[in-house]
């Protein structure tokens, strides 16, 4: 019996599962860094978020009588990203609510993978941020870790002291206070790059995120345009505003946002020029929110705002078709 189908009859092995699996692999360094710096509690946060995401996706798809596609790994990525965006000492119900909201409302109610306008993990994070502001803005750093207790799987309470994130210190007390806290400027850059600062569990270690990101570039899962343009825009704009650009790109959630959330397939523009506009917009919004708003950090909000602009960017910015004189769309609208 001969089968027949449309051409082409061969296919690239890079399907959805391939992309999602590689993103998960790329997040492993950041996960390890989070456990190293914030103890086993970070691991529990991540496990609980992932399980919530998988459960919520399965239940929603069963309820809406859709094929259950939880095995493609996109739900697990959402769960892990939500966990990465949580402060270390957060109560466990917070990531659960954030993940469930992201998966159920933002992803499945909009039609599932590919139909969501906003990044589910970020909406979840912003929702709980406004729901439980005190919990979400209390930052802890481990207190001289006792390594055996630190990595004991059942030692879920963190021995820690409350401390503001470098961005908050910079905002409230200025750069000099920050430098004296770390000893020297070099030390500040180094500790920020390695991840030994206060902040969300997955965002502090720029080194781990970069390792994962270069893995993704080598696998051709994401393209470096958006993250690098985003980071460069932030550096240039902070320098113009009289701030320390290196400090600004190494602290906060910029790297996590740039490499793992601003590169989400579904919610970013498709054309190259569109992504440039998107990335510059991200940098602009981040700098404005960091320096001119009441909040110390603005990566999540700027990515969500630009997510909302993505359909418009895709509609307005087009590429000239082969053999056409002008860009498309003009003569039809």
């Amino acid at each position: 019996m001969l089968k027949t189908s449309i051409s082409p009859h061969i296919h690239s092995p890079q399907n959805i599962e391939y992309a999602m699996r590689n993103v998960l692999i790329a997040m492993v360094p950041a996960l390890l860094a989070s456990v190293y710096f914030f103890g086993v509690r970070a691991l529990w946060l991540e496990i609980i978020s992932i399980l919530t995401a998988i459960l919520a996706e399965t239940l929603m798809q069963l309820l809406l009588r859709k094929p259950v596609t939880v095995s493609d790994g996109s739900a697990a990525i959402t769960g892990l990203l939500v966990a990465f965006n949580m402060p270390p000492n957060i109560p466990f119900y917070v990531p659960v609510v954030a993940t469930a909201l992201g998966i159920i409302v933002v992803k499945q109610l909009f039609g599932g993978l590919g139909h969501n306008i906003f990044n589910p993990a970020l909406v979840g994070r912003v929702f709980v941020m406004f729901a439980w502001l005190p919990e979400m803005t209390t930052w802890n750093v481990p207190l001289h870790p006792d390594w055996i207790r630190h990595f004991n799987l059942f030692h879920i309470n963190l021995d820690s002291i409350t401390s503001a994130t470098p961005l908050a210190v910079n905002k409230l007390q200025g750069m000099s206070a920050l430098v004296s806290q770390f000893g020297s400027k070099t030390q500040l850059y180094l500790q920020s790059f390695l991840g030994n600062t206060g902040g969300c569990i997955g965002e502090t270690s720029e080194l781990a995120i970069l390792i994962g990101a270069f893995y993704l570039f080598s696998r051709k899962v994401i393209w470096p345009t958006v993250p690098f343009v985003y980071i460069i825009t932030v550096a240039v704009l902070t320098a113009l505003m009289g701030q320390d650009p290196l400090f600004h790109i190494l602290s906060g959630g910029l790297f996590l946002g740039a490499f793992f959330m601003a590169t989400d397939y579904v919610t970013t523009p498709m054309t190259l020029s569109g992504s440039l506009v998107y990335a510059v917009g991200l940098g602009l919004l981040t700098v404005i929110l960091r320096l001119k708003s009441g909040l110390p950090e603005g990566v999540s909000f700027s990515i969500l705002l630009m997510n909302g602009l993505t359909p418009l960017i895709d509609k307005l910015i087009r590429v000239r078709t082969y053999g056409k004189q002008s860009k498309r769309g003009r003569d039809h609208e």
Partner: peptide, 18 residues
């Protein structure tokens, strides 16, 4: 399955379509 807007098709299209 649903389109996930990964834009791979835009990158490989030899006549720059969408």
């Amino acid at each position: 399955r649903s389109c996930i807007h990964c834009a791979k098709c835009l990158m490989v299209c030899p006549v720059s379509l969408n």
